[in-house]
Nucleic acid binder design. Structure first.
Lengths: 342, 342
DNA sequence: TGCAACGGGGTAATCGTTGTCACGGGACAT
DNA sequence: ATGTCCCGTGACAACGATTACCCCGTTGCA
């Protein structure tokens, strides 16, 4: 019944009225502009406090032309790797006083483009994108600072923040070779996926370096999940020329490989997993893994993005995030024939 | 050098000009209003296409008073449980044509409140919050539709979407009792955490139901991570009155328990983990777990949120998301003395 | 025939904030 | 003493889309 039905929202105008200043001055106080006298500042601050004023960000963003957000687009948010990356980026965003818009692009090329365009339509201050299906040439004309991670975008000549897939895969296989293995198999995803291809190339690099044979029957491609890898591994190890070591190119496939090795009692076969997973150290033997730290990738991406936002143009070069090999046992097994002769 | 330095952005006005209509009509087309003649519609659509027009969402949001976004606030984005939940919510958001703002609140009560207020200042259409430290009484006055998940917010009388922690913990311990165990230990986090407390209560419920002893030396509290749990388990199983079964109240602690059991060769001790983890089925024996499906929780939260957004008020009741017990072996081990007598 | 209802369209105000420009007055240098 | 410059401040317009309101013909119906 009170006469003053409180207005829906408190506007800067209301604050200014209460403090006896213009909205402009109130705005100055709210935005930390130094050119305000201490007395005025205090009055405004007090008004803000008592009225519970909060900036309407939609209005601010319209006026400024940019929104205090950055968008991140990943294939799957639930993937622990990307989840950790998002976490790191959110942390950094907090420091920048910016909010984080997350979106997934693992639907189709069309929705992927729509999603990115939608983000741009929101006038995001920056974009971090894991390119998937879409052609990104449309970004050419758009001024939004953008950083790509993990893979190169199709249709756009841009630097990328990524891990050294090829180099690390090579290092892993060399590690196996160093322990005496001459028949090293690979279990991997579809080779049309850039990441998979690079790791596959690294695998070949290592074999070539060591003069080891490259054999098709040692390669299992197209393993999209643990289940595929489970079957593929069975086929690999059941033949007469079974490998003494396996290089699994994704943590997902590693789970399948491990299950198969355990199921068939062949835990004597060496294994290195590209991509770590929890409990890799609980299994016997514990699984040696190459770990790419998502936080590091994310951090590097944010560094790059803040650079772009500051106006530094993309020079087309890639930022390579290092990887590390975690020796746990499975990657240090020696082949049976060597053990016998020892 | 070209004479026409293209204008920064294409506005609705430009589309209208190109199509020879007013902005109002162009707006109608863009927003799918039916009261436009087919011919006009086509002209506008063509203009949109050729100019590459995109709605400026910041302007639209200002005018409408709400932004087409929903905010989700969780303790840790990187936690697989919340990551999966976010993933599900993002999927649902896509259907609603809404973007998702994610934020973490695991910093402090103050930043938690600032984060939520910041979201509200953005005029989000809805909020999904996992309350942590902050007092949420300030939300009382705010019209933004809000749904809380996992825990009850402090300072606000509101329904919640949550799992039945206490009931499920009770079920797990009863499951162990059913297999003959009379000395069941618990490894858990700090009991000041609501979730931990509820699970602890469920543990006691079960013991009481079965007339089993409640002993302090069977309870390891304050295990914040796998490492703590590792040490705590060592203490638990080394005494003279060691338990024959362990109930671990978080997947994180379960990792520590498993490591300790393996390290000390006591894989004969039964174990049920509250919270599943990958490779729980690779370990020997595979770990029986109670799984709370994050997607289900998220989905229920979205159902509730869309209801709120449609104007249905909170009736204060909780939505309970069911859990399921996944029998894998470790929870079905029988105590040594029973085996001996068998 | 008269008139209301409706389809199709336009004009201008509005959302809340902030950049631009202007102004009076003191400090300081010429 | 006069100009220059900076400070604190305010009036005002603009950001781009939406929407309240108005207008003009057609129809349909009494």
């Amino acid at each position: 019944m009170s006469g003053s039905m409180s207005r829906k929202v408190v506007r800067l105008r209301d604050v200014a009225d209460a403090a006896g200043t213009s909205t402009k001055t109130a705005s100055r106080v709210v935005n930390g502009d130094s050119r305000v006298s201490p007395d005025t500042r205090r009055r405004v601050e007090q008004a803000v406090e008592s009225l519970g004023y909060q900036v309407d960000v939609t209005a601010r963003s319209l006026r400024r032309g940019v929104d205090d957000t950055i968008g991140i687009v990943v294939p799957t948010i639930g993937d622990p790797f990307f989840a950790k990356a998002i976490e790191e980026i959110e942390k950094r965003s907090l420091d920048l006083g910016v909010k984080l818009l997350v979106a997934s692009n693992s639907y189709s090329a069309e929705t992927e483009r729509e999603i990115v365009e939608g983000l741009i339509g929101r006038r995001v201050a920056g974009l971090i994108i894991t390119p998937e299906f879409a052609d990104y040439s449309f970004l050419q004309r758009i001024p939004t600072p953008t950083v790509f991670i993990d893979r190169h975008p199709r249709g756009l000549d841009s630097g990328v923040v990524r891990v050294d897939d090829q180099g690390a895969a090579r290092a892993a296989v060399l590690h196996l070779a160093e322990h005496g293995h001459r028949r090293v198999a690979i279990v991997t995803d579809d080779l049309t996926i850039r990441t998979s291809k690079l790791r596959h190339l690294g695998y070949h690099d290592a074999l070539r370096d060591r003069g080891l044979p490259i054999e098709e029957r040692l390669e299992a491609h197209g393993c999209r999940d643990a289940h595929d890898a489970f079957s593929a591994t069975e086929a690999l190890i059941s033949g007469p020329h079974a490998p003494t070591a396996i290089f699994s190119s994704r943590s997902e496939t590693s789970l399948g490989v491990v299950r198969q090795l355990h199921a068939s009692g062949r835990t004597d076969i060496a294994l290195i997993s590209f991509g770590d997973f929890v409990t890799a150290d609980v299994i016997t033997p514990a699984v040696t893994a190459i770990d790419h730290d998502p936080a590091m990738l994310a951090s590097a991406a944010m560094d790059r993005l803040t650079e772009r936002m500051a106006g530094v143009p993309d020079d087309g070069s890639d930022t390579i995030v290092p990887l590390r090999l975690i020796e746990r046992g499975s990657g240090e097994l020696t082949p049976a024939h060597l053990e016998a002769s020892a």
